[in-house]
Design a protein around this nucleic acid. Structure first.
Lengths: 343, 343
DNA sequence: ATTTATAATTGACGCGCGTAAAATTTATTA
DNA sequence: TAATAAATTTTACGCGCGTCAATTATAAAT
């Protein structure tokens, strides 16, 4: 650190003895200059701590090194977890992730895409609301910037989709539940804000049919993202009214299960596999807290990290191949059964 | 939506019949132009969907309308919650929030500040790691851009600090616990990553002294942010070994409490106020999930929203008053006792 | 030592916008 | 209606960088 502050690349060119166009090349790709000059630049760089003006850099570029990441609700640990994984993957690929949450509001999802558009991102990873999303807006957006959907699918939208195979995963846990005890009932939100919920219900029905059991679906009213409360209040009410025909409840996601577990505790209903238990509860997602519920929740683990990595690598492949791929890819990862004590 | 796409403000000036400088004024502050011309502009605006180039806009500005928000670990629901509140407050004030997580890595905190610096933010809200943060880096940063700390304080760093009064809050819950049963032991991490933890321990000690009880402090090994696991594994071990001299444990934060609660359940220890319970556990923070633990966790609620709002309004006051305030402000909000069933 | 391929330099232009000064229009008040 | 104040237009320049073409320097290969 020395002398006066460097104001622009011109000045840094003087003090470093490197021409400005070469510096420009270096900043856009350090490997594009000769090793010896690169060393000279980097030596000068930590003597003067100059950084190019981001705004000037990007103003004439058609696209930047920014990657937009949009999730529907960051306060849901599932999305913070997957958001984190995606962020890290972008950083290590030399891009600048910009994580945006729509805070549960589909209107904000549109606004987020809007403001992303003006940041000229190289690509965008979007976990959409699904049904509540504005499909046409997303599709239009997708024509301008490479878009990969994850978690929730919207048909024919975006260049690719990465998610979990709900049919496989639900099939897996239904099979386990049927084999190890009474066949499960299914507990979900009536108006789910997420297409996965629909798939899971379908998958539940098909699985039950396959095993020769009748399907029992119970739906809770309410909208929004406060799943724990819904699970606790309405799930608890159902438990109190003893509406479930079997002693096993498969919840559409872990957060509902966490709520129901809490309600069961309050009602003095012992949940688990032990002989003194009268109820089994299972979930889906391997929510970060499902390990610490009472009892610990048996659930399906989505491979966060694999989904994140694949989503990112897919996006980069599309970005680097210029033209959009001929066919829309859908990649589904298998869920893994995580057996804990609740079922 | 019509004809060809508008490429720049010049073109939009032609089609709208407004001069470019006036448009420039409008985009920087819609209220700075006459009402009638504003209407004309906005009419043209939704006919042509032109948006000024963000990068060109900011390249000659000393500061932008960006507000940086840096939290130590976004996957901690406490920070996603407060991050969300802060984001919303910025948006409604007409600024663009940029939320960055340091993912538990103090090194990343420095990098985040670095990259923020090149975005020329109007101001930054930082929830630092505390002891693990690089104080000198933050102080240097603070000389260049208005900086308000929240959640965790670092003395003489940043123009202001907003947080919770740990002495008041811990005093409150210790008093409650002493009054309603056996005096509490204190459970915490040995090497806390957060200055609040130190304050809480001190506050516990002072409170116990005030009530004439001996302080009993138990420390768990381990670093990092996986508090639930620490609470579960090490807290559980302590429970099993019956090291706690009283039947009441106050945890330094809710996440430790959630872990311990889980361990207690596993050990068959009934937690709560009922006569058949042999243990009381309390936490601190009113973590979003503390309502759904088994039993629901008695804790101290930090006023997220008040902290967020005050932090934002303080920052804006500093930004708008040009020169830094003469004295560093520290604002502490009181915590509220949330009585649930665990203690 | 000479050729050849590669990299760096020089000089110059343009991007889309902010912004300032002067001229002109529009609105307000007397 | 004229005088005054306020807003808009015109004109013009500069910001910091990307990028291009032509030139020169450097390194590798013969």
């Amino acid at each position: 650190m020395v002398q006066r502050k460097i104001r622009n690349m011109e000045e840094f060119a003087s003090v470093s003895g490197i021409s400005r166009p070469t510096l420009s090349k270096y900043f856009n790709n350090p490997e594009s200059v000769r090793q010896s000059t690169r060393m000279r630049i980097e030596k000068a760089l930590d003597q003067h701590d100059y950084r190019p003006n981001v705004y000037a850099m990007n103003q004439n570029r058609r696209t930047t090194k920014n990657i937009g990441i949009v999730v529907p609700y960051l306060a849901d640990p599932f999305f913070t977890e997957i958001g984190r994984a995606v962020e890290m993957a972008c950083i290590s690929a030399g891009y600048s992730p910009i994580l945006l949450s729509s805070h549960g509001d589909p209107e904000l999802e549109k606004e987020n895409l809007e403001s992303l558009r003006s940041l000229k991102p190289a690509g965008v990873l979007l976990a959409p609301f699904g049904r509540a999303s504005d499909r046409s807006v997303i599709q239009k957006f997708s024509q301008e910037v490479p878009l990969v959907l994850f978690d929730a699918n919207i048909s024919e939208t975006g260049e690719a989709f990465i998610g979990t195979d709900n049919f496989q995963s639900v099939g897996l846990i239904v099979e386990y539940l049927c084999r190890s005890g009474e066949p499960p009932c299914f507990f979900e939100m009536k108006t789910p804000s997420n297409p996965n919920a629909n798939k899971r219900q379908q998958a539940y029905q098909e699985s039950m049919e396959r095993h020769g059991f009748p399907a029992h679906i119970f739906q809770a009213e309410g909208e929004g993202w406060n799943f724990e409360e819904v699970g606790s209040v309405q799930g608890g009410e159902m438990l109190a009214r003893k509406v479930f025909p079997t002693n096993t409840v498969l919840c559409s996601n872990d957060r509902l299960a966490i709520g129901m577990l809490s309600a069961a505790y309050g009602l003095g209903i012992r949940v688990g596999l032990d002989s003194d238990c009268s109820l089994r509860i299972a979930g889906h997602d391997d929510h970060p807290f499902s390990r610490y519920t009472c009892p610990p929740l048996t659930t399906i683990a989505q491979d966060y990290s694999a989904i994140a990595k694949r989503a990112v690598s897919t996006l980069f492949r599309i970005i680097e191949s210029e033209d959009p791929p001929p066919t829309r890819e859908e990649t589904l990862f298998e869920g893994k059964l995580v057996m804990r004590d609740s079922a």
